[in-house]
């Protein structure tokens, strides 16, 4: 079937199987490999993107469900010369090591801060990131980065 969606601001029409997932569309059809797959039970959060303004796990969205949606991936929020404040905060606070969970973590963190109204404290950030697993950082610096990004935005 054919679906049309907006990805990182650009309209895309792709032909996909009925059983394709949004993450397959992004990684395979569109070559946006910054969105990762780390599990098969919708727990790890490595695949988080924004869909119509909400952070969602793209491994648990069928391509058909994303038909007509506005999707933003890690590739769409900034680039090395013009980083998103959350990307900058992650770098400045050493909030990543192997980098595999990082795109999903950043996309979740952006949604969290946007909806947090500037009022997030450490506990709220830890709570808000429960859907993203990181095995490297112990979360300490991720939490620092999210709080720093909140105050810089």
């Amino acid at each position: 079937m054919e679906i049309t969606l907006t990805v990182n601001g650009a309209a895309k029409t792709v032909d996909v199987a009925d059983n394709a997932l949004l993450v397959d569309v992004l990684r395979e059809s569109l070559g946006l490999t910054g969105t990762h797959v780390g599990c098969d039970t919708s727990q790890c959060g490595a695949c988080v993107v924004h869909m119509n303004g909400d952070a969602v796990k793209s491994c648990t969205v069928l391509a058909g469900q994303a038909n007509g949606a506005d999707v933003t991936t890690i590739e769409g929020i900034g680039n090395p010369d013009d980083l998103h404040p959350m990307q900058e905060a992650f770098r400045d606070n050493h909030a990543l090591q192997c980098g595999f969970c990082t795109p999903g973590m950043i996309m979740s963190a952006i949604d969290l801060v946007q909806k947090g109204g500037g009022a997030l404290d450490e506990a709220a950030v830890r709570d808000g990131l429960e859907g993203n697993l990181c095995r490297c950082t112990g979360y300490h610096n991720i939490v620092k980065a999210v709080l720093a990004a909140q105050s810089s935005t």
């Binding site: 990684r27 946006l32 490999t33 910054g34 969105t35 990762h36 797959v37 991936t73 890690i74 590739e75 900034g78 680039n79 090395p80 980083l83 990307q87 992650f90 770098r91 400045d92 050493h94 990543l96 980098g99 595999f100 990082t102 795109p103 950043i106």
Partner: peptide
């Protein structure tokens, strides 16, 4: 020192085997 690696990882430009 801030990490050299980060530029690619925070922008989704890492190059992992499955990529």
């Amino acid at each position: 020192v801030k990490r050299k690696e980060d530029a690619r990882f925070i922008t989704g430009a890492g190059n992992y085997t499955d990529d």
